[in-house]
Design a protein around this nucleic acid. Structure first.
Length: 368
DNA sequence: GTTGAGCGTT
């Protein structure tokens, strides 16, 4: 590796017409050499281009060359003004020993996606040419990608279910046999895969919906996500019916909350979307079950000694059996949930209600 | 019209 030069690989481009896209700029400037990243700056209020941009190359020489050669090139009728960039955007990227005091945070890709504001004529500038800044230009096909590749083909599609069992049920039970430590490991691996290789992570999750389901449920258990998140993924039918008798690799065997729609689903249609703020406060909601908070999760602190479970006997034998296979802290939690009175349940918001109903359905065989 | 943000710290 050559010593990192802290000189600017980035040029400042001004006088850009409002309707020019980052792709167009990248295309223009690739005449000087491979372009690493282009960021047109937008006014977050209006969504309109501010008329200037930063174009990053892979090396300083190319940047200089661009400044020399692409000065005043006309783009959509205006002449660009091109200079080496002076100021850098804070603790963003590789300024080794240069200004910004703070060492780089693990910040993700530079997201610039001002939502589709002004309809500048013909193909708005939005869309993001940007990709995570890398240090080396793209090579030919023989260059191995610098991401974690995982062999997905090694994974089984799924195991057959016992007769009479349904998928969600089995997933929950399987999950219950996983120790908190294991669960944390899996979460960490998944997070790593997602950050280093999002595309493959997506493939994995869509091809193994049972995994997606299990991970989500695990996140609920670990209090990593709030149940209200479900609302934002897909509204859950009021009486979540545990679907399907088969493991889910096939499309129609999806468990209930991974969206079963065939179209890629994105955030729910706007409009009323913001009208339903997550009811985190839950004034009359019971406190979250202890033992699975992120702070204590998997740590050396075992669940604080709690009074012996008294309500166990109130459950049907089948439920007792199922509970008996669980670690103690989970038993406590489930018991709390299963023993909520109808009044208490009614006090919850719709999503929480739905989750609890589902748990009850699984363990008690009845939602009410 | 001309130099870059901000849901957050292993």
């Amino acid at each position: 590796m050559p010593p990192p030069t802290s000189a600017s690989k980035t040029i400042f481009v001004a006088n850009i017409p409002y309707d020019v896209s980052e792709e167009q700029l990248a295309n223009t400037f690739s005449e000087a050499g491979p372009v690493n990243n282009v960021e047109i700056k937008f006014d977050p209020q209006t969504g309109r281009s501010k008329g200037y941009a930063f174009v990053q190359f892979y090396d300083e020489a190319t940047a200089l060359s661009a400044v020399r050669n692409l000065q005043e090139v006309p783009v959509n009728g205006r002449n660009l003004r091109v200079e080496l960039s002076t100021d850098e955007p804070g603790p963003r990227r590789g300024g080794r020993g240069s200004r910004g005091g703070i060492p780089g945070h693990p910040g993700g890709p530079v997201g610039n996606a001002p939502s589709g504001g002004g309809g500048g004529g013909g193909g708005g500038p939005q869309g993001g040419y940007g990709r995570p800044a890398e240090d080396t230009p793209p090579r030919g096909y023989d260059a191995p990608p610098q991401v974690n590749r995982v062999d997905l083909s090694a994974l089984p599609d799924g195991a057959p279910l016992p007769h009479g069992a349904n998928a969600t049920d089995s997933i929950s039970k399987t999950l219950a046999t996983v120790t908190p430590g294991q669960m944390q490991d899996v979460m960490a691996s998944m997070k790593s895969l997602i950050t280093t290789n999002p595309e493959q992570a997506r493939q994995l999750l869509t091809s193994k919906p049972q995994l997606a389901y299990a991970l989500f449920q695990a996140m609920l258990l670990m209090n990593i996500v709030d149940p209200s998140v479900l609302q934002r993924i897909q509204p859950l039918p009021a009486t979540a019916p545990p679907p399907s008798n088969y493991p889910p690799p096939a499309q129609n065997a999806y468990p209930s909350y991974p969206p079963a729609s065939s179209a890629p689903s994105y955030p729910p249609p706007g409009g009323a979307g913001y009208g339903a703020p997550p009811q985190q406060g839950g004034y009359n909601a019971p406190p979250p079950p202890a033992g699975y908070g992120t702070t204590s999760y998997g740590a050396a602190t075992p669940a604080p000694p709690q009074p012996p479970v008294s309500g166990m006997a109130a459950l049907p034998p089948s439920a007792q059996q199922a509970l008996a296979t669980l670690p103690e802290d989970q038993q406590q939690m489930l018991l709390q949930v299963l023993q909520l009175t109808p009044d208490q349940i009614n006090a919850l918001d719709a999503t929480q209600k739905a989750s609890i109903m589902q748990l009850r359905q699984q363990f008690l065989g009845t939602a009410a």
